[in-house]
Structures are given as C-alpha cells and as structure tokens.
C-alpha cells in the first residue's frame, strides 16, 4: 500500500503543478493580451514602444511559458510582434492593423490548453 499512497502523492503533485502552471500561463497571457489590446488601431508615435514592451514581457516569460506552450505558438507571437513593429515603423496602416489582429489571436492561442472547455478537450 506504500506505493499506492506514493502514487496518490504523485498524482496530487501533478494536479497541483498543472494548476499552478495554468495560473501562471493565464496570468502572463492576460497581461500580454491587455497590452496587445491597448495597441492603437492605427500606428502612432508610441506604438513601437508598446510593441517592445510586449516583446520584453514575452522574453522574460519565455522559459516559463515554454514548459507547457508549444514552441511554434511562442515563435508566432514573436514574429507577429516584430511584423507589427515593422509596419508601424514604415507607417503601413493596413499591414499594421492585420498584424495587430493576428497578434491578439496568437496571444489568445498561448493559453488555449489552459482553458477547460468542451471544444478544447474534444
């Protein structure tokens, strides 16, 4: 029975780790999403700095997010942030708007596996 209790402990630990990780990922993604939503619909003088902040946040949490978020998803957020920044720099409003919208979607995808919905599970 010792091994049963040990396994019970392991299972509890796994559930605890998963819940903590979910909390961490959701919190980080929420912050990133808020920052992405705060981006203006048309690029202005402060847009590049705002995008830099999103990149900095992603960089600082990349190791943590990488524990449970697949690497292509993280790379996609980075690429879209870079692309939105490039469009903002050149003043391409259409390109920027498209990149901004895609960036918000990509950030939402980061915590897709941490949302308990029928759609995600099935």
């Amino acid at each position: 029975m010792k091994s049963v209790w040990l396994s019970f402990g392991v299972l509890l630990l796994v559930v605890l780790l998963v819940l903590c990780n979910a909390g961490y990922v959701n919190h980080t993604v929420k912050n990133m999403k808020r920052m992405a939503n705060d981006l203006p619909l048309s690029p202005d003088s402060g847009t590049e700095a705002q995008l830099d902040n999103i990149l900095r946040l992603l960089d600082s949490h990349e190791a943590g997010l990488g524990l449970s978020v697949s690497f292509p998803l993280i790379d996609r957020v980075r690429e879209l942030t870079d692309s939105a920044r490039a469009y903002a720099q050149t003043g391409d409003k259409a390109g920027y708007a498209s990149s901004r919208a895609m960036l918000i979607d990509a950030i939402s995808d980061l915590n897709r596996l941490e949302k308990v919905t029928v759609k995600n599970i099935m």
Binding site: S7, F8, L11, N21, L67, S70, F71
Partner: peptide, 26 residues
C-alpha cells in the same frame, strides 16, 4: 516532435503511472 514541450509527455506518463498503481491498490 521537437516542437512540443517535454511536459506534454511527462504529465500523462506520471498521471497514468499514478492511476495504474492507485487503481491496482483500490
């Protein structure tokens, strides 16, 4: 698949191992 984190396998493996031992004990 190098694109997915190790946790995608570790979590199911540990969960399955624990479930198997718990179930056999129960």
């Amino acid at each position: 698949n190098q694109d997915i984190p190790l946790s995608y396998a570790l979590i199911p493996i540990l969960t399955l191992m624990a479930l198997e031992v718990i179930l056999s004990g129960v």
